[in-house]
Design a protein around this nucleic acid. Structure first.
Length: 635
RNA sequence: GCCCAUGUAGCUCAGUGGUAGAGCACUCCCUUGGUAAGGGAGAGGUCGCCAGUUCAAUUCUGGUCAUGGGCUCCA
């Protein structure tokens, strides 16, 4: 007797051991068709897995998230199968499921070309149609190693050698292709219908840059054609938001060969920047930060002292002048410590919060550069808080409050938090770590935030919290950070006079809210697809005349709006109004103001919103009020 | 830094072993038009850069720089 308990609590009794498939077909033909795998007592298994004891069983169908994963995993095998058929002397390695798809890494004597990819995809479709049964077998370890070695599959043999000895080694076969895999897989290749190979890229064996560079083929797989279409559409939509593309279209910035990884800001992009910088300056002033400015180029000696020279040397731009070596600052903290050190500080002075829109340069690996998101020259909304250990928690609470307010103002409501605690290699005493980790945790609790714990992921000099935001298409960006530092103040000789007249080393908190302004602006561009809220828009409105009769009036309207501090331009060109409206709509201006003879005689203006709505005629003062309200609520 | 792809007019892109083309933008002319493209004419390119092969290279080959997609890295 085998009793199978299903998720709805019902039980099915069989007088013999059954497979997952048997149970599915005993329930109904629809389920039989849709089933791709099973979960027996919480463990994912194949459909032909034999259940010998009473068990809890969930049948995984194509419609379950896990079912789709099984399909993708089997698609990866299908890819490997096709590659082995077309290029028999390829070595296969690993082929896992990833978000929205899968990949498989291969070792082959020559690079795969885009034409190869098309041929591979075609072969995959053929193999799928062959309706090959996918069968699992448990193998003996050394036999499996020999099996793969005989086929010249040395990477596979290596993988087996690294699998713990007490685990079953399962091999899956479909036709003449056999691959090591934990499974589960769909029962036959015919279940794989909707997939597409996306791109080929390099990837190091085992992710180690000392190893061979393998060729990774990425693919996507879905349950239905429609799902796949939606996915490809989603990619297209994301591409339309690309900050590099929009930056060009809206004339915000450019990058050129002579300054790789560095931004040339154009007037409109810089206007956007200034809104953000000035907003942050105001927020920090209101929260008792003191803004400072420190040098770009500092003698190597200071970087040796701070430890950057040892740990970060290859990422620093260095300049030798007058027989001295200088480094362009990659971080602001050593400079901030120098400011702190000027004049003797008392415990009464603490906490001291020094802020800088600090321009930093880091010589990032050329292959790592990416538009404004990963650059070599960037500006941080950086600040360092010097305080006592007892003040940590209060400071963290204040910071989180500040950060939430800022993200909210920029329209980001979803906040993801990660707390990283002490790594194995670290400085500072256990007592210090105990105290500061619990201070961070308490502060997070006080802020009513959920967080993910990352044990051992802290920096060697202190624990940290990372804050990420989610944009309007669901992508997650890490921006904010708060790091405790037990090391640098001491290395650089910062101290204060304590209550008992002793000299103490302050704790330093590194913190940023936006992170890199360049990157944050890139995120903003993509989040809004270039249609910025009024308070940020580089140009908030444009005044358009219908014909040359209204040129003087249009100029007066523009001047009046500008005199109230708004960023308003005018377009008095000799063009049709529809033409001008189209152009400024493509530039995504929040408002367009139209003046013709009717407006001149009524002393009003016609207003068109970015959504294309005609707001009708109104006096200029009414628009000014509207602008003020809209800017105040930052939408 | 590593792998693959790409680099042609201001922008988006086509194209060829015999020194280049489209649309939009730009300039000029006509048009004075009421909520997403009025018409005409003109100007504009050392085909990323440096070598090599060739009678001849933007095209083929090598190198190099940059960009894009990944990998690695991000103290």
């Amino acid at each position: 007797m085998t009793v199978i308990r299903l998720p709805d609590g019902s039980e099915r009794v069989f007088d013999h051991p059954v497979t997952v498939f048997d149970v599915a077909s005993s329930i109904g033909p629809g389920l039989e068709r849709a089933a791709v795998a099973g979960k027996v007592n919480g463990k994912l298994v194949d459909l032909d897995n034999l259940i010998e004891n009473d068990s809890e069983l969930t049948i995984i169908t194509e419609k379950d998230a896990e079912g789709l994963e099984v399909i993708r995993h089997s698609s990866a095998h299908l890819l490997a199968h096709a590659v082995k058929e077309l290029f028999p002397d390829t070595q296969v390695t690993i082929g896992p499921v990833i978000e929205d798809g899968f990949y498989y890494d291969f070792s082959y004597k020559r690079p795969f070309t885009p034409e190869d990819l098309a041929a591979i995809e075609k072969r995959m479709l053929e193999i799928a149609k062959r309706n090959l049964k996918i069968e699992r077998k448990v193998w003996d370890r050394s036999e499996a190693i020999n099996f793969f070695k005989q086929q010249g599959e040395h990477y596979k043999a290596q993988i087996i050698e690294s699998i713990p000895g007490d685990e079953d080694l399962s091999l899956y076969s479909q036709g003449n292709f056999t691959d090591l895999c934990r499974g589960p897989h769909v029962p036959t290749t015919a279940k794989l219908k909707v997939f597409k190979l996306m791109k080929v890229a390099g990837a190091y064996w085992r992710g180690d840059s000392n190893n061979e560079m393998l060729q990774r083929i990425y693919g996507t797989a879905w349950l239905t054609k429609d799902d796949q279409k939606k996915y490809l559409h989603r990619l297209e939509e994301a591409e339309k938001r690309d900050h590099r593309k929009i930056g060009k279209q809206l004339n915000l910035f450019h990058i050129q060969e002579e300054a790789p990884g560095m931004i040339f800001w154009h007037p409109k992009g810089w206007a956007l920047w200034q809104q953000i910088e000035q907003y942050m300056r105001q927020v920090q002033n209101d929260n008792d930060y003191l803004e400072i400015r420190t040098p770009q180029v500092i003698d190597k000696e200071l970087w040796v002292q701070s430890g950057h020279w040892d740990n970060f040397r290859e990422n620093m731009f260095v300049t030798d002048t007058d027989e001295r070596s200088f480094a362009i600052k990659p971080m602001n903290c050593p400079g901030h410590v120098q400011v702190f050190k000027q004049g003797l500080k008392s415990y009464r002075d603490l906490p001291i919060r020094l802020a800088e829109f600090g321009s930093c340069h880091r010589n990032e690996a050329s292959g790592a550069l990416h538009g404004m998101m990963r650059v070599r020259a960037f500006t941080q909304d950086d600040a360092h808080i010097f305080c006592t250990e007892d003040q940590i928690q209060e400071e963290v609470v204040r910071f989180i409050h500040l950060l939430k307010g800022v993200y909210n103002d920029f329209g980001f409501k979803d906040l993801l938090v990660k707390l990283s605690t002490r790594p194995v290699k670290r400085v500072g005493t256990d007592a210090q770590w105990d105290k500061s980790e619990s201070a961070l945790e308490s502060a997070l609790m006080e802020a009513a935030l959920d967080w993910e714990l990352q044990p051992g992921e802290g920096a060697f000099y202190g624990p940290k919290i990372e804050f990420s935001l989610k944009d309007c298409i669901g992508r997650v960006w890490q921006c904010g950070t708060l790091q405790l530092d037990f090391s640098m103040p001491e290395r650089l000789g910062a101290e204060y006079v304590a209550e008992d007249n002793s000299r103490q080393v302050p704790v330093m908190l590194h913190r940023a809210i936006l992170g890199s302004l360049e990157r944050f602006i890139g995120i903003l561009i993509e989040n809004h697809a270039g249609a910025f809220p009024l308070w940020l828009a580089p140009t908030q409105a444009v005044v358009l005349n219908i014909s040359k009769n209204q040129i003087d009036y249009a100029q007066r309207v523009t001047e009046e709006l500008n005199s109230h501090g708004f960023r308003v331009s005018q377009d008095l060109r000799n063009e049709k109004i529809t033409y001008k409206i189209r152009e400024h709509s493509l530039q995504k201006l929040p408002y367009q103001i139209i003046v013709g003879d009717a407006e001149v005689s009524s002393k009003q203006i016609s207003v068109r919103s970015r959504s294309g709505q005609d707001l009708g005629q109104m006096p200029v003062t009414q628009l000014i009020e509207r602008f003020k309200e809209e800017i105040a609520i930052k939408i």
